[in-house]
Design a protein around this nucleic acid. Structure first.
Lengths: 211, 211
DNA sequence: CGCTTTCGCTACGGCTCGTAGCGTAATGCC
DNA sequence: GGCATTACGCTACGAGCCGTAGCGAAAGCG
């Protein structure tokens, strides 16, 4: 996902291997050095690439790290586990596993912080990371509605608001657990979370319903 | 909250006014420059203080920004609004208002990202920012239990897990809405969120209960 | 008054940044 | 094959920030 050259069909093509090497080197540098101490010169050296090559493809550190981290979220899937609760638990555990990796924790939050002052960066994150996650919410919700576990929402605007809300609650809770509270979102936590999400605070405490 | 000098009762005392000026200058610099372009030299110049003075009090950029941002959360309170739902809505709106300020958005996420590689910084954030917020959850929960809106939880370990869960859900959702989705956590959103939190996904869609 | 600590100022080596310049390598088109 | 075009590796550079040292002056305390 480096910055595309404007449709040039002639000349030497860019090395796809270099792209992969640079992104992998970026993740490795994130693990070892963290965001603030990561330098583009170091990344280039790790990737076995000249610094100038790196600058020809990415505008700066922010864009590079977004692309490097975004690849981590490619593996996210939503297999049908039979019930809404099981689907949620499955995808949340996947999400938590990604956030447990140091390159994700470190890089993701940093670029999100930077994106509050950079609209282009915000769009990049939205396209490469956020939208892919949100698609899972849409998918799981539609599936639950087919099962009759969630009511249909005729108004499309209202439905969009609901999806956004669910997404912020789910993704926000997992991220906060992993990064701010700094404790693992393990199976026990995910069960409790799913229970609250489906039944609410009062309902979750009751022993009667098994999820 | 700068690094304390080891109990020296003699000599020239540190200027408290300088502390306040430095923290205010840090917030101003966060607004104008953002985290990555903020330099300690610039902060010192804004505060009308020598750069060396700044380094005598704070170990580095991370610690300084944590302290500067932490002050923003001092105003958080939990007035009794009569019901759990109203209490939640009130405190969430306060929290959202703080996160709407650019110095909070920008600085907070950046130091959280850095804290994934710095245990001392993580503790600092926990003490100065997170614990104060969590106290509100404890307080609101106890109040709701007195009202009979939430069940008592005899096992203290279980109760602690519940409080942690609620905290991650509430704070995480608001932060994610404000910073990742990048849309305001306004009254309409907060109402929808509170509804889901109390009633769960299925229950929130029903029209029968007014919260 | 002396003792102690802080303060402002200047200066410094070291690091990273992002770019420019050059020669070379790899492709498409004729 | 020759040519135009683009990517690549390498070197070098001015600029900016970092964090620290050293100094004299200022502000408290007994």
């Amino acid at each position: 996902m480096p910055s595309r050259s404007p449709a040039s069909r002639t000349g030497r093509p860019r090395s796809a291997a270099a792209d992969a090497a640079i992104l992998a080197a970026t993740r490795a540098a994130l693990v070892e050095l963290g965001w603030s101490k990561l330098t583009l010169g170091d990344v280039a050296a790790r990737a076995g690439v000249a610094k100038t090559t790196l600058y020809r493809r990415w505008a700066g550190k922010n864009e590079l790290v977004v692309d490097a981290v975004a690849e981590l979220f490619d593996e996210l899937e939503l297999p049908d586990r039979g019930s809404l609760a099981a689907d949620i638990e499955g995808v949340v555990l996947q999400f938590a596993a990604i956030l447990a990796r140091p390159e994700a924790r470190n890089g993701l939050m940093a670029v999100v912080a930077e994106s509050t002052r950079d609209d282009a960066l915000r769009d990049r994150i939205r396209t490469l990371v956020v939208e892919r996650q949100k698609r899972l919410v849409l998918q799981g919700r539609a599936r639950a509605q087919r099962r009759g576990e969630l009511p249909e929402e005729p108004d499309p605007e209202e439905a969009a608001r609901t999806v956004d809300l669910i997404f912020d609650v789910v993704a926000g809770a997992v991220v906060h657990r992993a990064l701010v509270s700094g404790e693992p979102a393990d199976e026990m936590w995910v069960r409790g979370f799913t229970r609250v999400l489906l039944l609410g605070l009062a309902g979750a405490a009751e022993d009667s319903v098994d999820v």
